[in-house]
């Protein structure tokens, strides 16, 4: 989490450092969402001290991992100046495809996983090429893709998902590292999320990541400086669909197959990324902030659970929070 820090020299007197920190925490960027996450977690612990126990923390990590993976994927697309509204139905489609094709058969786990990867990449490629080469706004491209996937999957299964996921498929989403039920364990989902975030941080430091942010900030200037903007953005869509596939494996393992898998996840992922201070329209924000945004969003849901809010009021609270968070971030940025 030193990406925001590394740009500024953190030297000076103790008072200067304190002021720097205060500014950083209140700036509305990645440190603010981190502060929000800490505050929410502290409130949860105050309400329910048992949340601080390693077992509950790991359960939280397991639940949050898919959203983190999706948020990282969405980050690539958003920072390049586009949207991906298709990830929710892609997650749903992948889970249903997996269940239908393997139907509980262990031997088919790996072939089906390979097929899911290919399918995910294909969806990303279509999204990317239609957006960049045919110049359809990504909002419309991915909205259309969402309709197509939603309809195609239900057409294929006749309305209700059939089949079952094999046990080895579900390990990643469900099991953990010393596999003793009820004991402390590091969930595999957490490891997957960490690997994804690490890989994304590395990628954003490479020329690809730098050019991607540049393309989101000013596509014309980036094109004139010699970067293939259309291919950069297409790769962002490929990464988003790839990570949606990874998230589908985690979600399928965690929650199993239902007709509603993935519904609304695209807006959750976009909310998480935006909560992390990443600007819609591209060119601003870090991938770590997107991850923290996802954790903060998931922590807020946990808090709502702890407060025993009626589940129907939750969307309203979520709505207020994202508006306030983005308004807060916008307040500083323009002055």
């Amino acid at each position: 989490m030193t990406t925001g820090l590394s740009q500024e020299t953190a030297q000076g007197t103790a008072r200067g450092t304190a002021r720097q920190w205060r500014e950083r925490l209140l700036s509305g960027g990645s440190w603010t969402v981190l502060a929000l996450l800490v505050v929410v977690l502290v409130v949860i612990v105050v309400i329910n001290p048992s949340f601080a126990e390693p077992v509950s923390l790991m359960a939280f990590a397991k639940k949050a991992a898919p959203l983190v993976v999706l948020a990282v994927g969405q980050y690539f697309v958003i920072v390049s100046g586009e949207f991906d509204l298709s990830v929710g139905s892609l997650v749903g489609a992948q889970v249903v495809i997996a269940a239908r094709l393997m139907d509980g058969d262990e031997a088919l786990t790996w072939p089906v996983l390979a097929l899911m990867l290919v399918f995910g990449l294909l969806v990303g490629l279509v999204n990317g090429l239609v957006t960049t080469l045919l110049r359809v706004p990504s909002f419309i491209t991915t909205l259309g893709m969402m309709l197509v996937l939603f309809g195609a999957i239900r057409l294929w299964t006749g309305g209700a998902p059939t089949g079952a996921l094999s046990e080895s498929f579900r390990v990643l989403g469900r099991k953990g590292f010393p596999d003793v039920p009820g004991q402390f364990q590091v969930p595999y989902a957490l490891l997957v999320a960490l690997v994804v975030v690490g890989f994304a941080v590395l990628l954003m430091r490479r020329p690809f990541g730098r050019s991607l942010v540049a393309a989101g900030d000013n596509a014309v200037a980036t094109a004139y400086s010699g970067a293939p903007v259309w291919w950069l953005r297409t790769r962002a869509f490929l990464l988003s669909s790839l990570l949606a596939t990874v998230a589908a494996v985690l979600i399928g393992g965690f929650a199993g197959v239902t007709a509603q898998v993935g519904q609304g996840l695209e807006f959750m992922a976009i909310t998480a990324v935006v909560l992390g201070g990443v600007a819609l329209g591209g060119g601003r924000g870090t991938v770590v902030a997107a991850m923290v945004g996802a954790l903060a969003l998931e922590a807020l849901f946990t808090l709502f659970n702890q407060l025993a809010l009626p589940s129907t009021i939750r969307p309203a609270v979520q709505g207020v929070i994202i508006i306030v968070a983005v308004a807060y971030a916008a307040r500083r940025r323009r002055t």
């Binding site: 909310t271 819609l280 009626p310 129907t312 009021i313 969307p315 309203a316 508006i323 916008a330 307040r331």
Partner: peptide, 27 residues
Amino acid sequence: LIISALRVNAFIATLGMGLIVKGFLDT
């Protein structure tokens, strides 16, 4: 007002407002 005065991106502002209304309706 949220979009023009608070400078919140329209996507987020109206998505959030939609969620608020949904919460009210469901409750």
